[in-house]
Design a protein around this nucleic acid. Sequence first.
RNA 1: GGCGGGAUGGCAGAAUGGCUAUGCAGCGGAUUGCAAAUCCGUGUAUCUCGGUUCGACUCCGGGUCCCGCCUCCA
Length: 464
Amino acid sequence: MLYVHNNLTRQKEAFQPIDPQNVRMYVCGMTVYDYCHIGHARVLVVFDVIYRYLRKVYGEQHVTYIRNVTDIDDKIIARANENKESFQNLTERFITAMHEDADLLGVIRPNEEPRATVFMKEIINMIKTLVEGGHAYAANNGDVYYDVSSFANYGQLSGKQMEDLRAGARVAVDEAKQDPLDFVLWKAAKLNEPSWDSPWGKGRPGWHIECSAMSTHCLGNHFDIHGGGLDLQFPHHENEIAQSCAATGEAFVNVWLHNGFVRVDDEKMSKSLGNFFTIREVLKKYAPEVVRYFILTSHYRSPLNYSDKHLDNAKSALTTLYTAVRGLNAPEIIVDNKFTKQFEKAMEDDFNTSEAIAVLFEIAKEINRQRDAAPEQAALLVSQLRQLGSLLGLVQDDPEAFLQGKNQISQDGLSDIDVNEIIKQREQARIDKNWAESDRLRDDLKAQGIILEDSGGSTSWRRA
RNA sequence: GGCGGGAUGGCAGAAUGGCUAUGCAGCGGAUUGCAAAUCCGUGUAUCUCGGUUCGACUCCGGGUCCCGCCUCCA
């Protein structure tokens, strides 16, 4: 039985899909005006793992995963103006970049990736319904606002009281709003802004409404899981609930999942603080799988501190796993033993990836123990390690490729050919028992980041 | 100010009312021409003060500190 921590109830609860034949999950994706940073990588990877696990439990054909793209908003418009390019051009570029980054990180593509600009009709219809139902009003400045007072449960997800929110010093007073907590559904276009026609004049959607319109369109009014970063809990997801429930008259989402932040020096990594590292920056130095491993070492709801030291640590750990699966031909057999159960128990406990990874290390240790005495048994365990690893998107590569840094984007230093040439020279020195020369060559390579391992009469190598 | 989350060994990071997390690093041993890798062994911990309990790191209460949301943000 799969248990998940539902942010709506703030409790771990048994996950019961509305329809086990079609488990439906929507995750808030990126606003595409810049490259994705490590915080975005975390959402991508965390929900990828959740998606993988749901597919394992309910079957590949029985899970629908939607991750949207916000391709129109103030920042996009501002950035496009700065760059003197069309906003479409800007967003296309960054959508492509996002796909490149996600693919490198081993993130399975969602079933659909709806974009706000493609769903204008649905967005406008939903706003119309809200206005007609008395949940929204057109203000005299041309904007349309959601009337928060019309929705009794407002604040449930974020645990906020409307009174407290109003008392909060940071709620700006906007003349056009009837209540400072009301939020915009439709923004009237200013001069030279991209706009769409609507019953309220030219304009564009507010941020929250696109997710309500697209999620219900793609998944139905009432679906299983809605996810995103913790910073979206309020106001974004709170507002989505208000909009969707008011528009459809039905329950919206059963389970809300939010991943914790990536931090730098104990501070949230964010665009506004400017303390972010883009995925592509980091991938210049570390293999994508190292980044993925790093993200999965901690529980998805915990904060995750980013630093080179932690990535180095992740690389060493992953090296241990790849070293264990090296040199054994894994048969295509499903292995089911105590490790499988341990692993599943961990994953079914609100996707406890750190505990699941611990199981991978236990398997690795067992492989190493058995490798000489019982190679067939060891090979079976290699299959298992890879099968379980596939649920996390880890240890799926060719071991030599990982260990020799072939899947790292930037390769510097010696080429494989150089390395093999030096190894050959050293072989001769070793045959001659010229240990001084042999050690000199090895030290030489080590100084260039190449580590040699002599075992079983042959020499293998890896990049440090 | 309101609301919420958290404090675990050198570092990272899980779990648990009594029993080994795991990884990285360290130390000792085996192995190796020497290494590397691997295996075996090993040390170091639960912020603080009270309470409940046969027993708490785990439950309850006070305190200290950190972080987040309340404004765009994954």
